[in-house]
Design a protein around this nucleic acid. Sequence first.
DNA 1: CCTGTATATACCTTGACGCGTATATGCTCT
DNA 2: AGAGCATATACGCGTCAAGGTATATACAGG
Lengths: 113, 113
Amino acid sequence: MESVFEIIAEPNRRAILSLLVLSQQSVGEIERQLRLPQPTVSKHLRVLREAGFVESTVDAQRRLYRLKPEPLREVAAWLAPFRRFWSAHVDALERHLDRMDQSTPTKKKTRRR
Amino acid sequence: MESVFEIIAEPNRRAILSLLVLSQQSVGEIERQLRLPQPTVSKHLRVLREAGFVESTVDAQRRLYRLKPEPLREVAAWLAPFRRFWSAHVDALERHLDRMDQSTPTKKKTRRR
DNA sequence: CCTGTATATACCTTGACGCGTATATGCTCT
DNA sequence: AGAGCATATACGCGTCAAGGTATATACAGG
């Protein structure tokens, strides 16, 4: 389990991360919200913790898990070079649609929902 | 192979995508730049094509592959909610460093590369 | 202390994915 | 038409990760 991309390839792990973006959660809370068996949650949390996506603090018997930013930032960093590319595509699409607007002005109302 | 995240979990596929962000490439060119056996490249390209990451046009015997924006945009969309979170963390880090600057003003030159 | 609750870990099985090798398809040029 | 190049596909294999079930650890409260 090397790269951050393999970590977030797992749907349940992404779900856990999305839960934690709201606030920190205990294992039991995650378990109930995602309707997953407890060992499954614990195992995914272990993977996430060892990869640096989350950290935990102890609260009596509970463990509270919260997000750590670095690994997701790594994903964003890899993604960054593509942003230029696809924003260019948006522009091209918009120009195309604008040209369509000019040639078929009757359909204008359907644009810009 | 359902989600876009599983697609980009594979290192060679990420490498191919990163190559294609520069310009469109033929299979052979990808093969040589990444030093991968040809069937490997073709198979990864198939996966990428079926997932909508790339498209190809025919140029005699060659096929030229180029990026398509949508799937990577999907990744960015999933990532977006976390941006708020980690930028808050950056701010905290910056405030911390600023405080360090004040206490040790001699090292100021090393910040703000 | 003992019971109940919360979380972690161990073991096993299964399925999927990536790779290598071999072969097929298709195009070009002479 | 035939040779050579470019790309795609088929098949068998090894590996690894996810899930399920069972069990271990640890804390709390009567």
